[in-house]
Design a protein around this nucleic acid. Structure first.
Length: 270
DNA sequence: CCATGAACCTGGTCGC
DNA sequence: TGCGACCAGGTTCATG
């Protein structure tokens, strides 16, 4: 589910509730949600600490206490939100944290989501690639780094150790804007298309953040708020429909085991 | 270095 | 209505 824009939206929406607060307790229904720490670790290292900042790094939501941090990955179906009271019969609550008289809820139907406890960002920084919305993500960076790989371009865009934050939706959208076939070998893509790809990625991600992310299933981030970038999608989930540029029929194939949507007429250089 | 397939989970949809 | 097959916004690990 969530890619960079959705994670950014979630981080922003919970930040205002959590700043300067401290968690009093944790209640875990699905123990695997705690990836690299235990209930005892939480009690000794996190409980009582004041939240300094909440932000996004790649697809992780970081709750930063200065001396330690909690990193939350939503994976496919995770939802993180604040409520005033718990509904006892609510399904799919993997865990919740209590603070003040409120609760930070982690709801996750497919149970893939994970919480991590780190001393600092070193571990994540070492394994994650460039942030596509940072200044370092330039045309020069794209040309140098994509040319140096021999990978199917869509697969490369999904590789979090290369560029982080792009997922299945925005990979397809970015490639459509840049007119690149998703199976193109990265080293063989012409420079002008790679330059276009750089601007497309930045445009697609930042526009989605403005709109609060994409909603394909019903997905709410902050009480009643619903992202509406889905209304803006050009190829994703549009197989069988006409390309909005050339009227050809959008096709759906598998690339890197992911459903991949593209226009066979205007996305070329396979 | 790179591609593929399985695993981790639950629920929705589609065809018969 | 029921049932099986397949699909889903992500990541990791094993294998060739």
């Amino acid at each position: 589910m969530p890619e960079l824009p959705e994670v950014e939206t979630v981080a922003k929406s919970i930040e205002k509730h959590l700043i300067a607060k401290s968690f009093k307790s944790i209640h875990v229904n699905w123990i695997k949600t705690l990836d690299n720490f235990s209930l005892s670790d939480f009690k000794h290292k996190v409980k009582g600490l004041s939240v300094a900042r909440v932000y996004r790094r790649a697809k992780y939501i970081i709750i930063d206490f200065n001396e330690v941090l909690l990193a939350v990955h939503l994976r496919m179906t995770g939802k993180l939100y604040v409520v005033n009271s718990i509904k006892p019969d609510q399904k799919h609550i993997s865990l919740f944290l209590k603070f003040d008289n409120k609760y930070l809820i982690f709801e996750d139907t497919r149970k893939f989501g994970r919480f991590y406890l780190f001393d600092n960002l070193d571990y994540l920084n070492n394994k994650l690639g460039i942030e596509p919305l940072s200044n370092n993500f330039s045309k020069e960076w794209i040309l140098e780094n994509i040319k140096s790989k021999n990978r199917q371009i869509k697969s490369l865009l999904l590789d979090q150790s290369f560029i982080c934050g792009i997922g299945n939706i925005y990979a397809d959208e970015s490639l459509w804007f840049a007119k690149i076939h998703p199976l193109s070998i990265s080293s063989a893509i012409p420079n002008n298309k790679l330059i276009k790809l750089q601007t497309s990625i930045v445009k697609v991600l930042s526009e989605s953040i403005k709109r609060g992310g994409t909603t394909i299933r019903d997905y709410t981030y902050d009480f009643s708020y619903v992202g509406n970038y889905a209304l803006n999608l050009k190829v994703f989930n549009r197989s069988g429909k006409k390309c909005l540029r050339c009227k050809s029929i959008i096709l759906k194939i598998k690339v890197a085991q992911r459903g991949t949507h593209y226009c066979p007429n205007c996305q070329t250089n396979k």
